[in-house]
Simulated scan of single mutants.
Amino acid sequence: MSLIGTTIKPFTTQAYKQGKFVEVSDTDVKGKWAVFFFYPADFTFVCPTELEDLAGIYPTLQGMNVEVYSVSTDTHFSHKAWHDTSPAIGKIDYFMLGDQNHTISNNFDILRAGQGLADRGTFVVDPEGVIQLVEITSEGVGRNAVELLRKIKAAQYIASHPGEVCPAKWEEGEETLAPSLDLVGKI
Rank of each mutant, 00 (worst) to 15 (best):
V46S: 12
V46L: 11
C47S: 11
P48N: 07
T49M: 14
T49K: 15
L51F: 01
L51M: 12
E52D: 12
E52K: 15
D53Q: 04
I57F: 03
Y58E: 12
Y58R: 02
Y58D: 07
P59F: 01
P59T: 11
T60E: 13
T60P: 01
L61V: 07
G63L: 08
G63P: 05
M64C: 04
E67H: 11
V68K: 01
Y69W: 06
V71Q: 01
V71M: 03
S72K: 11
H76W: 15
H79K: 08
H79W: 11
H79V: 08
A81V: 09
A81C: 06
W82I: 04
W82F: 13
W82A: 00
S86F: 08
P87M: 05
G90R: 09
I92F: 02
I92T: 10
D93Q: 13
D93F: 00
D93K: 05
Y94P: 02
F95D: 00
F95P: 00
M96E: 01
M96Q: 07
L97D: 04
G98H: 06
Q100V: 10
N101Q: 09
H102C: 11
T103C: 03
I104F: 03
S105T: 08
N106P: 02
N106G: 03
N107M: 08
N107H: 13
N107Q: 09
F108P: 02
L111T: 03
L111H: 04
R112G: 07
A113V: 09
A113T: 10
A113C: 01
G114L: 07
G116F: 06
L117D: 00
R120G: 06
R120A: 05
G121W: 01
G121F: 04
V125P: 00
